[in-house]
Design a protein around this nucleic acid. Structure first.
Lengths: 338, 338
DNA sequence: ATGAAAGCGCTAACAT
DNA sequence: ATGTTAGCGCTTTCAT
């Protein structure tokens, strides 16, 4: 399968590479309409497919968009252990699918891996998940490549960001639980001091408590990892505290762990515990009982991220920050306390 | 951030690109040991990162491996609606992560999209999911690029394949249900005539029935899509047939739909129905009750696929076919019928 | 052991 | 409107 190049097309059309290149790049004002037709026909006939390597090398874009997931902890070796990523990335891919850009997946562990990605593939843009760390910012700042940060609390004018209103969302969820009659609400979350996102969510929780005149108790906060396993662990301790009736998890996956432990001990949900997740992953809808959660419409967010990074690349995105709202999705794991 | 090229390194080392290239490519017999050291040091100092575009253009590999998921039906717009893909691809990525190769994700809808992928990115290899269609084979056959087919029943010496023993697996699952005392076992699956994989699984089901002297009834076979939604639909009809006590789904995702419908109607699982899935996705373990299913260890398969495609690229993979075994994972959605 | 030079496919500044 | 040409970073053949 010999590659068809622009030279081949030029030959067939009795013209030169330049003209063909112009046609391909839509600089039609530089080429006569007849030639445009001739070239276009020839391209189709010969089955021309551009070489992105060549284009990239010539200093133009690579048409590659990096989707970069930092591997935070060792346990999470698979990216998609947390369905949040699958759904999000799926959304990005879906939006980009017919744009001419492709998605290169990359899970980076060492800081400099990110640099490598940029340089190696000459990325046109990157969507980077959950970076809170300053070192990374410095590295990222060294590149002209547009970067869209997802769920990062870093404020640097170098980047575009797409965030959730985490504080408000957690406030809403807590408030919801309180209005359902819960007074003792546990929070199961990751290491708060390591993540401004988790911190914001905890703040929202505290504010809701405060607004309702409920005292905050540090013992009700369970900090570990944002994993199924930790949810499971935390639930063991929660079970020991007879006062707790409401549970707020910082991710659906954590809620699953919590629920599963409780159910495995014969506890009834929502009869004995009301639990609220965060994310609204696909599973939340298909499990039984269906999970009450803070919905962030993950795949839509993914699509939006695709749209944003494209707009950024095209230089038509002004706003540096995009905030997305969450909404309560009340399903079956919560109930009113009489 | 100016790019550091081999010329820069050459300059620093007072030598030429050629020598540097030799060092990079490990052709150390062509370079003096001192020079090797000098070059290596310079590379580190200057922070050299190779340009894959240039390498690719120069006729060498692109270091890009395409992971190609054909978009079969319109409904399934997101790749990762079926967690099978997320887990599998996650496994591939995990294996490839430190190999120097990167994964380009691509969901193709039109046949020729595959060609485009190949040419555009100058892929070094491709992992392609579920291709049963002959046209595709012709197209794929045109390329020298190594292709690893996942779950494809196409037999063409052009490709490498990694398959499950589907017939045996379905036989095993059916047999299991029979041994648990079930005589009326429904099958919920996709369009069988369109997929040799589904056909094989149905054959296994029939054989198990036959071996146990149970007559096959076409009415017990529900063909639709391999989706949660179809599982949900099919369950409605299953509920109308009072004889059915066992249900075999052709994928976990389908089983989830079935179970959810049944549970939503207040039916008890496994008390009233025993249902068996196929895949053993992550959710199977974390739902309640936990799903009994045919386990194929998806992420391990993904890792294996990564290993295989790498070996194929390196020319050190002899076997064209790799068959993987499935095992019964008995959990909580099935029970012995008294 | 090292170097010079051509070429991979494409773009774009610069002629014509 | 069209053609000429240099150059992007790298590999590799062919000298030296």
């Amino acid at each position: 399968m010999k590659r068809v190049t622009i030279s081949d097309i030029a030959k067939v059309c009795e013209t030169t590479k330049t003209t063909v290149s112009y046609v391909i790049n839509g600089k039609l004002n530089k080429v006569s309409p007849e030639m445009v037709q001739k070239v276009k026909t020839a391209m189709k006939e010969l089955g021309y497919v551009p070489s992105h390597s060549a284009k990239s090398l010539a200093g133009k874009g690579s048409n590659l968009i990096g989707v970069i997931v930092p591997q935070v902890d060792v346990t999470q070796k698979m990216i998609f252990d947390n369905p949040f990523y699958s759904e999000f990335i799926s959304g990005i891919e879906y939006y980009l699918r017919n744009s001419g850009y492709s998605v290169v997946l990359s899970v980076v562990n060492r800081e400099n891996c990110f640099e490598d990605m940029m340089m190696k593939w000459n990325l046109d843009g990157a969507v980077v998940f959950g970076i809170d760390n300053d070192e990374m910012v410095k590295i990222l700042g060294n590149y002209a490549v547009p970067v869209l940060l997802i769920d990062s609390y870093i404020t640097s004018s170098n980047f575009y960001r797409m965030n959730l209103q985490d504080e408000e969302a957690a406030y809403m969820a807590t408030k919801f639980l309180i209005e359902e009659g819960h007074k003792n609400i546990a929070v199961v979350t990751g290491k708060v001091e390591k993540s401004m996102l988790l911190e914001a969510r905890l703040e929202g929780y505290k504010r809701a408590l405060g607004d309702s005149g409920i005292a905050f108790r540090q013992e009700s906060v369970f900090e570990g990892d944002v994993t199924y396993e930790y949810g499971f662990e935390a639930a063991k301790k929660i079970e020991e505290d007879p006062d707790i009736t409401g549970i707020l998890a910082s991710a659906d996956i954590v809620a699953f762990g919590v629920i599963n432990y409780l159910q495995s001990k014969g506890r009834k949900i929502p009869e004995e515990y009301s639990v609220v997740g965060f994310d609204d992953t696909y599973q939340a809808k298909i499990m039984h009982p269906k999970l009450t959660t803070v919905g962030q419409n993950i795949s839509k967010r993914g699509e939006k991220a695709g749209e944003l990074i494209l707009n950024i690349i095209m230089n038509r995105q002004k706003e540096k920050e995009t905030w997305m709202k969450c909404e309560m999705v009340v399903r079956e794991t919560t109930r009113k306390l009489k």
